[in-house]
């Protein structure tokens, strides 16, 4: 009897710390909503449709920021996803065993480098290179709206590039885990039918498609919230432009730059509202991606494994 109450105490005691975690998440949502009330009440949904950001006149519209965040993240995704998947396939399916661990270590190192270091490198090394690239662009191509505008170097292209580099390790490591959970029998079946290496891997990738999409989305979630590196290379100019060369702005960057300068209550509340929406968007994207990865892992686990797969697993 005594023992049972001990156990209950242990459960409640450790559970209490678990509650803290849940409370923190709830508190973030609550606090951000509470602090941005002024802006929510004054602008309502128009906040997200207006393009004008004029702190002096007290007019706040967040469209340029949500545009910049989505544009830069999607650009990063387009650049990063093929590379990240290639890396995942190479490490888990193709690489010689001796190379595997060092490659994993190196890609993880890419994830460990602080955002501020990416930003510093971005300003002084990448942006000049991007500027040279933009200047060298032939005039006939520059007619195109996506490539129009003066070649500053800082702008959407730089932001997309640096985000892509930063997102690659996240997506590739999750994709690697997902590929690992594909039963060996899938590949062996393909080989047995005379498939080439590419076709066997394509079969494994197709089997893992849900998880792969989840891995890519997880990278997207990272890109949405990335702050320092983007702030330093995107040019920080609130405008909605299709041009890759145009200096633009993101939600995270405007908070980082203007938060301590926000002199009046409304300005501050508008910035906090941007934070609130960023929080909600990343929450949805991340939950969705985890759901996909989880459902993939579960279906791989419950799939009936043919008896022939067992000895092969034992050898591996």
């Amino acid at each position: 009897m005594v023992k049972r109450s001990y156990d209950l105490g242990f459960r409640l005691g450790t559970g209490l710390f678990g509650i803290v975690l849940v409370l923190v998440v709830v508190a973030i949502g609550f606090e951000l909503t509470r602090q941005s009330m002024l802006s929510i009440q004054k602008f309502g949904f128009n906040f997200w449709r207006t393009e004008i950001w004029d702190p002096v006149a007290g007019n706040f519209g967040a469209l340029p920021f949500i545009w910049g965040t989505l544009y830069s993240s999607i650009l990063a995704l387009l650049l990063a996803a093929p590379i990240a998947l290639g890396i995942a396939v190479f490490i888990s399916e193709l690489s010689p065993a001796a190379l595997r661990q060092p490659l994993v270590f190196l890609t993880e190192l890419l994830a460990a480098i602080p955002s501020i270091v990416y930003g510093l490198w971005g300003i002084f090394v990448m942006v000049p290179a991007v500027r040279a690239f933009e200047t060298a662009m032939p005039a006939s191509l520059r007619q195109w709206p996506v490539l129009s505008g003066p070649p500053f170097g800082v702008g959407m292209l730089s932001a997309g590039l640096i985000l892509a580099i930063m997102v690659i390790p996240f997506t590739s490591s999750v994709a690697r885990e997902v590929l690992k959970s594909v039963p060996m029998a899938q590949r062996e079946g393909a080989y047995a039918l005379g498939a080439t290496r590419f076709e066997a891997i394509a079969a494994a990738l197709f089997y893992a498609r849900t998880g792969i999409v989840g891995a890519v989305m997880l990278g997207f979630g990272r890109a949405l919230g990335e702050t320092m590196a983007v702030t330093m290379v995107i040019g920080n100019n609130p405008q909605v432009s299709l041009s890759l060369f145009a200096p633009q702005y993101t939600m995270a960057a405007v908070i980082a730059n203007e938060f301590t300068e926000a002199a009046d209550e409304l300005y501050l509340d508008a910035l906090i509202e941007i934070g609130l929406v960023l929080f909600v968007i990343t929450l949805i994207v991340n939950s969705l991606s985890r759901l996909l990865i989880w459902s993939m892992a579960r279906s791989a686990k419950t799939a009936p494994a043919p008896a022939a797969a067992t000895p092969a697993d034992a050898v591996a």
């Binding site: 975690l21 923190v24 998440v25 973030i28 951000l32 979630g221 990272r222 949405l224 919230g225 990335e226 702050t227 995270a252 908070i255 980082a256 934070g275 960023l278 929080f279 990343t282 929450l283 991340n286």
Partner: peptide, 8 residues
């Protein structure tokens, strides 16, 4: 919490 952007 792990996915919440650090700026938030």
């Amino acid at each position: 919490l792990n996915g919440v952007p650090s700026i938030v």
